[in-house]
Simulated assay, not measured.
Amino acid sequence: MSNVGGLRTGHGAGRPRPAWITGTVAEAHRLTAEPLARLRRGRLPLAFGSAAAVLVLWSLHFSALGTYVLRLISDVSASTPFYLVIVRLPASMYAPAPNLPVWGSLLQVFAVFGIAEACVGRRRTLTVALTATFLCTLSGRIMCYLGPGTVVGLPWISRYVSDTGPSAAVVALVAYVCCVRRAPRALTVLLTSMVTEVTLLPNLAGREHVVAIALGIIAALSVPAARRLRRASRGALSPDSGIVTDDHAVLP
């Protein structure tokens, strides 16, 4: 038998979806709606430029001269002098990663940089990416210095492992955007996968990825705190606050 609306009993069209499905769909929309709209208009210059940088640096290793140039401008490890780490920072972020194929780097960079560019802007995307890359490299140096005798330490041989590639920047940006755009489910998936990685493969890259998640979350929490501090400082210096800002100010 069918009801008045022509639907069989027990198959109503208004049955609500489970909350986790609704929440996941809402998160996916918040994270991808604006990036997809900009992609259709071709307005993701940072994502396209970053993907092009990955391709250019990857293509250098096909010749002896290109390999030399690539190492000169981007090669970074825990044994690299600190000033060279800073000089090579931008290129090292886009350079080929030791255990990641080029298509993986391209996919990561284009998708994550594109989402971040659309959600938080180019300047903030680059700031978070470069800062996370630098601090993750620094944390790798510290872990190698501590040595295998500590919980977070690494074997001395890890000092000479190449520490290039976009993974740290990508992980930090994903964590940052998930916090800013209120996507706790996506952040949980990221955190679970990175903890699983470092548990199964406790190497330099895996531990730096966990550090990158922490840096992305800290960056997301620091932005509203900095805004509140800026508003408070502006309010403290306003004439209505009663603070003397010039020779003619009058206290209430």
Rank of each mutant, 00 (worst) to 15 (best):
V4M: 10
G6I: 11
G10N: 01
A13C: 02
G14K: 00
R15V: 14
W20N: 01
T24K: 00
A26Y: 04
A28P: 04
H29Q: 09
R30D: 07
T32H: 10
E34A: 08
L36V: 15
L39I: 11
R41M: 09
A52S: 07
A53E: 02
V54M: 05
L65R: 06
L70N: 09
L72G: 14
I73K: 02
I73V: 15
Y83E: 15
V85L: 14
R88T: 13
L89P: 09
S92R: 02
P98N: 11
L106P: 07
L106I: 14
V109K: 06
C119V: 01
R122S: 06
C136T: 15
R141S: 02
L146P: 02
P148S: 14
T150G: 00
G153Q: 09
L154I: 12
V161P: 00
S162P: 04
G165V: 06
G165C: 08
A168S: 14
A168I: 04
V174W: 02
A183N: 11
L191T: 14
T199F: 05
L204F: 07
A205F: 01
V211W: 01
G216E: 06
G216M: 07
I217Q: 03
A220W: 00
A225H: 08
R227H: 12
S241G: 07
D247G: 15
P252M: 03
